[in-house]
Nucleic acid binder design. Structure first.
Lengths: 346, 346
DNA sequence: TTCGTTTGTTAAAACGTTTGCACAAACGGA
DNA sequence: TCCGTTTGTGCAAACGTTTTAACAAACGAA
């Protein structure tokens, strides 16, 4: 049916091996043969069969990726497109494709990875998130299969990963609010089993401590990466006898929930409550008021992950296992102390 | 290295062919043999090598997908995650994976598809968008390779696709505004070479005609699927001596641009200008005011595309080539005539 | 002239499956 | 008892590559 290496060989009057070597730029092939074979490949419309090729070479030029399951999805959503774009851009630049799968339960996810790895469908795997005691990480590590994690794995710091310095990022956010004159700052966190929640909470605590501000345990609220969590956190805070005047929020989406609640109750941002959150998704600048947010370089996280994984596949072991993508605080109206610039708040 | 069918065969005391048949549930294999072989596969941790398998069977159980290029990206962004989620969910339910590639130019995109198709890496292709005279469509059609388009291709109605009835959707949007008492309705369109722009403009025109409202050519503005386009359209409209009182807008993102501009200039929505747009991305309900939008079922578009493509691959030719995913107008504050309910506008 | 080296090519095995064909054993009807 | 059919299994070819080892030819130095 399709044109094979044999067809080309026959027409060119050479052996299949020669054609294969032309394909892989073997140094021992003469200029004349190369020219002739290439011309005939062109003429016959030859394209090499990837399946046959990778069967023998044991390489697929494909990276695997597990899509997050519905539960975590909302968090990933905005993150997602941008992150994937980074991953695929860099991958394709190196001649790699991306293979995506999903699983509808933790078990199915593991089965999917197993299939990709054991079935030799991919050369490496990119993990978009990790849970505590992640069985997928255990499996990949045990198989000694190349993989990279976006984020990091507190239980094993030896794992190749691309991450932000979330402690510092939260520190910066908190410090920014302090600099605006706030001394009653709350924190809206995410699920406590995610490293990202732990890290950011830590940064918040350190900033308070370094500036001699007291830590109020009731000013720390946990939730999901969902709008509703923000809404709930908002009503909790606004019903306290002693309210915070500013919040550091784990995710922009949560902040949208807070904002909506505040608007409904007639509170104003930043006057009644200042807000800084994380991720800097595109909508933060469209909201009213525009939201201050920490840009964590989502595209770059994906981009670097691809790059480092491909390097590792090609045998280029990186020096350190953790690569940090820099973050940047984008100050917008939601945390600007417009009306009482620098003045202390009563 | 890895466990092969031969290893299993040897240990089970049968031939490789028998093992292979156990794998594919061949009817002629005895219950006893099946049991034994499966036990041994389990014990040895056997997983079949996909490359070898698809080399001979000529099937990959993989669907290909080309990511839209940077230029179109912003439009796709919100669309994207949701759409992909639909595609992969349904694909994985049928045992298919998704292979993604990108190209940085039209030529590279075509090369990528060629590689996937000719290299036998995928069983079918999903196209997320189409341009006029799309060379990819021409190629796939010429190769008689299974593919499906999300959207439709005006130049060839015979192509398998999943689409919305965009004419009707725009009709509904326009009619809704008319029902709110508007008789001066403008339209903000997208790039004129995209079918979606043409269809929606058409629906808008028909609705006006059916209700006896005159068409003002200067009330139709073209742009990109970008915020900035909205901003520009807004200043154009608001500077007209005779302004429209409502707009139908091709995409939610464009509406965000309009909204921002209006807010800057001190205009209010819906009082000074009512707005209805398309796609109903998650942020429409978070904006102030919340935006009326036509929900086009992005997830379902992806879901159906997967399903129909897989059916076609498996030889199940569908009756009609075009499948319509229903749309739904979600009315929110941006088009509700709150203060003068039903009253005619002067 | 001789022989070691370089250059260009090929034959054949291997990668891990699937599948058409052959064949033996078991079965069942006459 | 005989023979046609069904049932269960194995042999070997095929899928389209890559790659090792071998070899012939050309070359160049002694």
């Amino acid at each position: 049916m399709a044109v094979t290496i044999k067809d080309v060989a026959k027409k060119a009057g050479v052996s299949p091996s020669t054609v294969s070597r032309v394909l892989s730029n073997h140094p021992r092939i003469s200029r004349e043969t190369t020219r002739k074979v290439k011309a005939i490949m062109e003429e016959m419309g030859y394209h090499s069969n990837m399946m046959a090729r990778s069967l023998v070479s044991n390489k697929t030029y494909t990276l695997g990726m597990i899509l997050p399951r519905p539960a975590e999805e909302l968090f990933q959503n905005h993150f997602f497109a941008e992150n994937i774009r980074g991953i695929t851009t860099q991958a394709s630049r190196n001649g790699y494709d991306i293979l995506m799968t999903t699983g509808h339960s933790e078990q199915e996810e593991l089965a999917a990875v197993t299939r990709l790895v054991k079935g030799k469908r991919v050369d490496g795997v990119i993990l978009l998130q990790s849970r505590r005691n992640d069985p997928i990480i255990a499996f990949l590590k045990n198989e000694d299969f190349p993989f990279i994690l976006i984020g990091h794995y507190a239980q094993d710091e030896d794992i190749l990963c691309v991450d932000n310095d979330n402690v510092q990022a939260a520190y910066d956010a908190t410090q920014h609010l302090i600099a605006q004159g706030h001394d009653r700052i709350g924190f809206v966190s995410g699920p406590p089993n995610l490293t990202v929640s732990v890290d950011r909470l830590d940064g918040y605590r350190r900033a308070l401590a370094d500036h001699g501000l007291p830590m109020q345990p009731e000013w720390i609220v946990e939730g999901e990466f969902l709008q509703e969590s923000g809404y709930r956190a908002m009503s909790f805070f606004m019903n306290l006898p002693e309210r915070p005047t500013a919040l550091v929020v784990i995710d922009d989406l949560v902040t949208f929930g807070i904002l909506r609640g505040l608007t409904e109750l007639g509170f104003r941002v930043p006057d009644d409550l200042s807000l800084v959150s994380f991720n800097n998704i595109s909508l933060t600048e469209l909201s009213t008021p525009p939201l201050s947010s920490i840009d964590i370089g989502i595209y770059q996280l994906g981009y670097m992950a691809s790059q480092l994984l491909i390097r590792q596949i090609q045998g280029d072991k990186p020096q350190q296992s953790r690569t940090i993508v820099p973050h940047r605080l984008i100050v917008r109206e939601s945390s600007l102390n417009l009306h009482r610039n620098g003045a202390e708040r009563k």
